[in-house]
């Protein structure tokens, strides 16, 4: 079983991943993109996208799903960061999941790019226990980039200090 976590800690994964063309189960299920999800209950519907999918093509599905999972095939392949950011900028407000062998050291960046949760394979989770993810999330508490959620923004802090 892969490990799912968000900023609050390790989570039970209520979602079932479906293969292409598989029958829908009773509970919440993640369909491979583009997925035939018309008529589904959005609350029970998620999709999984590869990291070469154009985020624009996912926009029409925003109100049909409550979870989008983005593939990170390797921790060094950072396309998913931009995809997360783009989905949020396009107005997606549901749950956003990063799926793949990402490192604890990338947790903060994922959160900042709009991800809520991270699903990592077992072997990696075993080497990097929860305590390391918690530490990594708070390792650097400031950022310089405006418009990314999470850390205290240095430019805003300076603006406040100027009394604007």
């Amino acid at each position: 079983m892969p490990t799912l976590r968000d900023i609050t800690g390790i989570l039970e994964d209520a979602w079932t991943r479906l293969d292409e063309g598989a029958d829908a189960p009773a509970g919440p299920a993640i369909y491979p993109f583009p997925g035939d999800v018309a008529g589904n209950d959005p609350a029970l519907t998620g999709i999984h996208i590869a990291n070469d999918v154009d985020p624009e093509s996912v926009v029409p599905m925003f109100d049909r799903v409550s979870l989008i999972s983005v593939a990170f095939p390797a921790f060094t392949d950072g396309r998913g960061f931009s995809i997360g950011r783009r989905l949020r900028e396009a107005g997606y407000t549901g749950r956003l999941r990063a799926t793949g062998p990402v490192l604890a050291d990338q947790f903060r960046y994922l959160l900042e790019c709009g991800f809520d949760e991270v699903e990592v394979p077992d072997a990696l989770a075993a080497r990097q226990p929860q305590e390391q993810w918690e530490r990594a999330a708070d390792a650097v508490t400031l950022n310089y980039q405006r418009g990314y959620a999470g850390r205290r923004n240095i430019l805003e802090a300076r603006r406040e200090a100027r009394g604007v």
Binding site: G78, F81, Q106, R108, Y109, E112, Q145
Partner: peptide, 14 residues
């Protein structure tokens, strides 16, 4: 320099 330091989106480029 400041903007590019630990940029959340652009730290794992190609």
């Amino acid at each position: 320099r400041q903007w590019s330091s630990l940029h959340p989106e652009f730290t794992f480029l190609g």
